[in-house]
Amino acid sequence: MSNRVVNLLVPIISIILGLLVGAIVMLFSGYDPVSGYIALWNGIFGDSYAIGETIRQISPYILAGLAVAFAFRSGLFNIGVEGQLMVGWFTAVYVGAAFELPMIIHLPITLLAAALAGALWGLVPGILKATLKVHEVIVTIMMNYVALHVVNALIKTVSGGSYKTDKIQPTASLRSDFLSNLTDYSTLHYGIFVALAMVAVMWFLLEKTKTGFELKAVGFNENASQYAGMNVKKNIILSMVISGAFAGLAGAMEGLGTFGSMTTQGGFTGIGFDGIAVALLGANTPLGVIFGASLFGSLKYGANNMPNAANIPLEIVSIVVALIIFFVASGYIIRVGLQRLNKKKEAK
């Protein structure tokens, strides 16, 4: 088997294993896994409404996945997508509500503001990593909690003590009557196009520009990049900033498309953490991220159908997602297994 095939097989085997273990869990908990997975399937593809909602769910997942993947390519692990997403969400809603401008200016400015807010939240761990060698994983985790509390406090402030911000102006909204009608009045919005555009941006940036080459080089080997005359510090900071900008846009999807406002959050949205799964499954490539986001976005939305249709708690899907991450992370053992299988075949 060539390396390429193995690289493709590892995520596929992980998904199968994850679903399999999920079925075993359902079986042992006294649920019927077959009707569970049928309910999941119908929750994703059942009718045009479900498909619309599923695609809507996929858009922030693509952006969160891009954020994690982009940082990974420069050797950085951005667990802070969750926090960057929240500040992006709040900023989008705030800018979207506070100004009255024609749509052609308002919407881009709002999206830009969300990206900037996320970028700012990524800048802090980036600078700390580049200048003081502080581990970005810890800083981004801490920044998540700072974001959670700060955003909640800001919502209270701007809404005058309430738990919810104002609705955004229609000129900043990503809502689309056309897409909504097409999918039986789902909340599908134009965000999916923004997300796909960003996939193209990431691909172009990484594969076709000098900056992208440097970012990847730093990810492969910092010392070699330094020796070749690249500015490693600048690239680390830049990578975190761009990663944060993607995450901020993911927040804008929720703010400008799905909800149109923001309520105080009791905990994290989970999209940022699932972004880690998306990136891992997609092997940190732009196209892979689309694939990973489609899978996890579908699973997450389809799960909502499971309590009603099959009477199974929807957390089963979170178990499956976590297991898939676990298996992808343990890819080494899958590779070993595949090699052994291969040798046996050759021996015959």
């Binding site: 869990v25 908990s29 692990f77 667990i79 994983v137 953490f273 880690i276 891992l280 708690p313 957390e315 089963i316 979170s318 178990i319 997602v321 976590a322 297991l323 991450i325 676990f326 992808v328 992370a329 343990s330 890819g331 080494y332 053992i333």
Partner: peptide, 29 residues
Amino acid sequence: ASVSFRADQVVSGVAINMLGIAIALFSVK
């Protein structure tokens, strides 16, 4: 995962976090 399977320990830890809350909530429900 992290000792025998040589997994990325941070990623494995993230999976443990997600799995812990998912299993707990699943069982509670």
